Amino acid sequence: MTTDATEAWEIWHNPSCSKSRAALSALRAAGHDVVVRAYLDHPPTAEELTEMLRRLGLEPWEVARSREAHEAGIDLPREVGARAAWIEALAAHPRAIQRPIVTTPDGGALVVRDTETLDRITG
């Protein structure tokens, strides 16, 4: 079955992350057509990250992995004035982006870090 990109689920996936693997497996088991983006191999641009943050309704520091951000030297204030710098830093250091991020066909997006969120999107 061919799925229009606007109707597809997408996962920003890190295959070495157990939560990312679990989310991908659950989405597929629920019968969803899933576009897999290996975001470490194909990092999002600043524009893509900005759009994803809009869909998530989050600020960039809210999707940053603390340890990885620190290791990448991302030491920015968590305030609106530093938003653009955060986005550029995360685009340059995708390991610091929380995972997995899943987009839904209705235009939404979620960071799927817990069982409750995964259950909500897989039905």
Results as ranks from 00 to 15, higher is better:
T2R: 10
T2G: 04
T3D: 09
D4K: 09
A8M: 10
E10F: 03
E10P: 00
W12F: 13
H13V: 02
P15D: 07
S16T: 15
S16F: 06
K19G: 11
S20E: 08
S20N: 08
R21K: 06
R21W: 02
A22L: 10
A23H: 02
S25N: 08
A26Q: 11
R28P: 02
V35N: 03
A38M: 05
A38P: 04
Y39S: 08
L40D: 13
D41S: 15
E48H: 07
T50L: 02
L53V: 00
R54E: 06
R55Y: 00
R55D: 01
L56Q: 05
L56T: 01
A64T: 07
A64V: 10
R65E: 13
H70M: 01
E71P: 01
I74K: 08
D75S: 13
L76I: 09
V80L: 13
G81F: 12
A82M: 05
R83G: 02
A84W: 07
W86R: 13
I87F: 00
A89T: 06
L90A: 02
H93W: 07
R95Y: 08
R95S: 15
A96L: 09
I101V: 14
P105W: 06
G107C: 08
G108L: 07
G108R: 01
D114R: 07
T115N: 11
T117Q: 03
T117E: 05
D119A: 15
R120N: 07
R120L: 14
I121Q: 06
T122D: 11
G123N: 11
